[in-house]
Write a protein that binds this DNA or RNA. Structure first.
Lengths: 336, 336
DNA sequence: ATACTAAATGTAACCGATTACATTTTACAT
DNA sequence: ATGTAAAATGTAATCGGTTACATTTAGTAT
C-alpha cells in the first residue's frame, strides 16, 4: 500500500507538503500542488484514514441508537439522519438495541471511547442521571423519544397537542363515545398522546370513561385484541383514536371481523402517517410526524455540538399535521 | 484522558504488559494480571480504540450498502446482519444509496481505504468488472440481489422457482387467466420472478399472454395503476401474481375500487411476506423470503472471508415458502 | 546447587498521517 | 542591490497502542 512518504519522495517534497496538499491546498504553491497531485494520481495514493482518525482523534462517524429497525417510523428518521450526515461528510453507525436498556449502555461506550463523534438517540430508556452526565461531555441529541427534567437537545413533535388534535377531530365529527388505544404506558410518548386525548374530551365537556382506554404495544395484534375487547362492551365506542397506524389497522380489522364497517360504524384515527396508513383499506386518517425532517434536524443539532457550538442546546418541536383519509368518515372513499 | 502508559506506570509494569492483559490475558501471570486489572478499574482506563484500529489496521466494522432503507425487506435483512455482527463484536455502518450507482462507487472507497473490514451489498448495480476486481482483494458478500457470471458469494432465494410456486398455486386453484405485475425489469430479481411465472404457465399448458404482464416498480401505486389497466381489458385476468407485497395491496385496492371482491372475483398472490401482507385486509398469500436469516448468513459468510477462509466463496440459496392467507381464495377468512 | 527450559516481562520499533515550529524561498519596497 | 515581511516548505515530535525480539524470572530435573 503506497503511503504518504512514498508520494513525498517521488515528488521531491516533504511529507508535510503532501499532507498540506490534501488538507490545506491553499497553503501550497500552485506549481508544487499540481506536481504532488499528479504523483498522487499516478501512484493511486489513498490516504490511510485510520491513521488520520487516530492522529486527529475524530472519526467523522456518528452513532444512531434505534430501539427497533423494523419500525418504519425509525427507519424514516434514520433516512433523514443519513441524508444530512452524508451531506456533511459524516458516516452513520447503526446501533440496534432491540429495546434493551443494556444495549444502550453498551453503545454509550462507543461514544466514551471516541469511536464516534456524537450520538443520536431514538430511544432513551437509560438512567437520566447517567445520560445527563454523558451529555455534558459528548455531543448527544435525542429525537422521536424525549425526557422530562433534563436539558438534552431534543427534536420531537408535541404529542400532547397531537393527541388532542386527533381526538378533537373525532369529536367534531359528532362522536362522543371515543376510545383510545395507547402505546406502552412506560413510554412518555404514549402517556402524552393519552394526555392529549383526555384534554380534548374534558375541554369538550365529555366524560373520560376509563374502560375506553386500553393499553397496546404499537403492534397490529394488540390493536386487534384491544378493539375486540372494546366491542364486547355493553356500550361500545363509535370512534377510536389509536396511538399509531399499525394498531389502527388492528382496530379496523377487528371491527370488520365483528361485522362493522369503517368509517360508517366506527371512525378510526391513527398516528404517524407511515406508508401503511395510505395503503390500507380504508385509508387511515392520522397525525403526520415529519419523520425525515426530524432526522435532518437532529443531525443538524448534533453537528452544531460537534463543531463546538453549545449555544443551541434546546428542544425543537416540529409541526405535526392531521392527514384526513377515509377511516374517520370525514372524506369520501377515494384512491390516491 | 488516561492512557496505557499511565496505567503501566502506576502498576509498575511496562506498557506491553498492560496491552497483554487486555488482549492476551493468558500470557500474563495471574498476580500481575489482577494487579493491572485493579489499576485499570481504579483509573477507569478506556483503551483508545482509534489507536488500536490504526496499529492493527482493522476496524471491526462492516459496511452494509442498502438501496433504500424504507423498504422493510431491506430493514429485515439489515436486522439479521446487525444481529450476527453484534454477536461477533462487529459494528455496522450504514450506506444508503437511494438507488444511485454513484453512491455504490463512493462507498467502495471506504472499503479500499480500509475504513471497514468488509462489505455486504443489498444491491449491486455497479459494473461487474469493477466488482469482480474489488472482491479479489476485499471481503464482499451480496444478498437480496445477485448477479450472473461473477463468482461472488451470494445469499438469496431462488426467485425463478419462487415465481413458479406462486403461479402454480394460482393454477392449482383453477385459474387460467393469470396476470403478473413485475418489479422493475432492469433488476435480475424481477426478471427471474417473471421467468418463473412463464415457466409455470408453460408447464401447465397455458398460454403466456403478454398483455397480462405489466411492469411495476414495487410501489403500491404502480400495483394500483397496472391493475386498473388490466381490469380495463376485454378479457381481464381472474388472478394476479404481484412481484412484491406492496404492489399486491395496490392490486387489491384497484380491484375493490372496480367493484370486485378479493379473493372471490380476483385471486392475488404477493411476494416477500413482510408484515404488511399479514396485516392487510384480506391477508395476502405470499412467498416468504427468510429475510432475517439471509442477513445472518450473509454476515456469516463475510466473517469467514474476513478471517481469511476463502474456501467458501459460494452461492447460498435459502429456502422460500408459500404462505397461504386469504387473498388467493384457498383459505377461509380468519384473523391471525 | 546447577543446568536447562518455559513462562513472564521489558525494550523499543512501528503503524502513517498531522502539525507546531524552524527554516528557506519569494515578492516587493526602498 | 538590500532589507523585510509574507509565503512556502521542511524537520521532527507526536498521537497511543501493538508486537517482534531481548531479557529476566520461575519451574523442574538432575
Amino acid at each position: 500500500m503506497v503511503k504518504m512518504s512514498d508520494v513525498a519522495e517521488k515528488a521531491n517534497v516533504s511529507k508535510a507538503t503532501v499532507s498540506r496538499v490534501l488538507r490545506n491546498p491553499e497553503t501550497v504553491k500552485k506549481t508544487t500542488r499540481d506536481k504532488v497531485m499528479a504523483i498522487i494520481e499516478q501512484m493511486n495514493y489513498q490516504p490511510n484514514i485510520l491513521a488520520r482518525q487516530f492522529r486527529r482523534s475524530e472519526t467523522n462517524t456518528i452513532l444512531v441508537v434505534i430501539p427497533n429497525i423494523l419500525n418504519t417510523v425509525f427507519s424514516h428518521i434514520l433516512g433523514g439522519i443519513e441524508h444530512e450526515a452524508g451531506k456533511n461528510g459524516y458516516r452513520v453507525l447503526l446501533a440496534n438495541t432491540n429495546k434493551q436498556v443494556e444495549k444502550e449502555y453498551e453503545f454509550l461506550d462507543h461514544l466514551k471511547q471516541r469511536q464516534v463523534d456524537g450520538m443520536i438517540l431514538l430511544s432513551a430508556r437509560m438512567d437520566k442521571g447517567i445520560l445527563a452526565e454523558v451529555m455534558k461531555q459528548y455531543p448527544v441529541v435525542l429525537t422521536a423519544d424525549y425526557l422530562e427534567g433534563i436539558p438534552i437537545p431534543t427534536v420531537t413533535i408535541d404529542n400532547v397537542s397531537s393527541g388532542r388534535t386527533a381526538t378533537e377531530h373525532l369529536i367534531k365529527l359528532g362522536h362522543s363515545r371515543i376510545a383510545h388505544i395507547s402505546g406502552p404506558l412506560h413510554l412518555l410518548v404514549s402517556r402524552d398522546r393519552l394526555k392529549g386525548y383526555r384534554q380534548a374530551l374534558l375541554q369538550n365537556n365529555l366524560d373520560v370513561d376509563n374502560i375506553l382506554i386500553q393499553e397496546g404495544d404499537f403492534s397490529h395484534e394488540s390493536g386487534y385484541n384491544q378493539m375486540t375487547k372494546l366491542l364486547a362492551l355493553e356500550h361500545p365506542p363509535t370512534a377510536v383514536f389509536a396511538a399509531n397506524d399499525e394498531m389502527a389497522t388492528g382496530v379496523i380489522k377487528a371491527a370488520k371481523d365483528h361485522g362493522l364497517s369503517v368509517p360508517e360504524d366506527l371512525a378510526v384515527v391513527g398516528f404517524d402517517n407511515v406508508k401503511l396508513s395510505a395503503i390500507y383499506d380504508p385509508g387511515i386518517t392520522t397525525i403526520a410526524q415529519p419523520m425525515f425532517k426530524m432526522g435532518n434536524k437532529a443531525m443538524e443539532l448534533l453537528l452544531q455540538q460537534i463543531n463546538g457550538d453549545d449555544s443551541n442546546k434546546t428542544q425543537y418541536v416540529l409541526q405535526n399535521e392531521l392527514v384526513i383519509r377515509e377511516s374517520c368518515g370525514a372524506k369520501q372513499k377515494n384512491h390516491g
